[in-house]
Amino acid sequence: MQERLQQLAAVIDDVLLGKPEVIRLSLACLLARGHLLIEDLPGLGKTTLAHALAKVLGLDYQRVQFTSDMLPGDILGGAVYDQQQASFRLHKGPVFTELLLADEINRTSPKTQSALLEAMEERQVSLDGQRHALPEVFFVIATQNPTEQYGTFPLPESQLDRFLMRVSIGYPTAEAEEQMLLQGGAADQLGGVQQLLNPEQLLEAQTLVSQMQVSPAVISYLQRLAQYSRDSQHFSLGLSPRGSLAVLNAAKAWAFLEGRAYVLPDDVQQVFPAVAGHRLVGRELLHPGSEHDPASYLLSQVDVLS
């Protein structure tokens, strides 16, 4: 299984060049049954990543471009009147899919945002008083454009919490970009991507990840990380219990991807910035993205060994 996953990562790596870290993180996010938020400028490969993931895993894929006039129904669907049968028929929205790419989620109104986020959390949608379960594999990749803030509704901290990870892809390296230009863009490459894992296998992997045992030493490390973020004067918002649980799950998935049956503190450290970065709020000196972003500062302060 792990070999298959390594292979899978390598295939996506061929499409999205020079970003193995992001690819691994997204895979880990998927394995931990979380959702991914990509904060990035347009044109850096968010769609490519989502598309490649969907193809490799053989997932049903939908893409929604969020706009400010969008209503919850545009995402979730609703009852539609069928003139021929003279009755209401349920129209399932784009959320009823296995992999949803929610582009520029901060462009739409909070109402629409929260409809999506609720569906992500509950993994089900209520329409007309009826509950409709979403597919068992349900993975949302949402994107945000951090620079153009005019007329947007940035997600509040409580909503950010719904995403297991927040990553940014960033510009490619010179080498990768040249190769991409030579190959004529990702779209061509996507065509040749084969399905490597079926949904059953993905579900099995997810189950294996969630069942992975974790040693008390790692648990204590996680707890100390959370405790430090709560006690330290450098943080105005510490890590919530949900946050530390998220770190644990992501670390398990990372260890799984590494082909290990147990979690090391190294796994925790690998996923920590992506998982905790958007859940921590630092004071003055710890602006996210600066040299001392809150997550790495926390990692440097807390002793790994008890």
Binding site: L264, P265, D266, Q269, L299, S300, Q301, V302, D303, V304, L305, S306
Partner: peptide, 27 residues
Amino acid sequence: SLDTERLSERLSRRQPALARAAGETLQ
């Protein structure tokens, strides 16, 4: 943890930069 601490202390006597930083894992 104790053994690692001892190792770190011993090596740092040789060369201060060899001490283990708090956030450094065993690996």
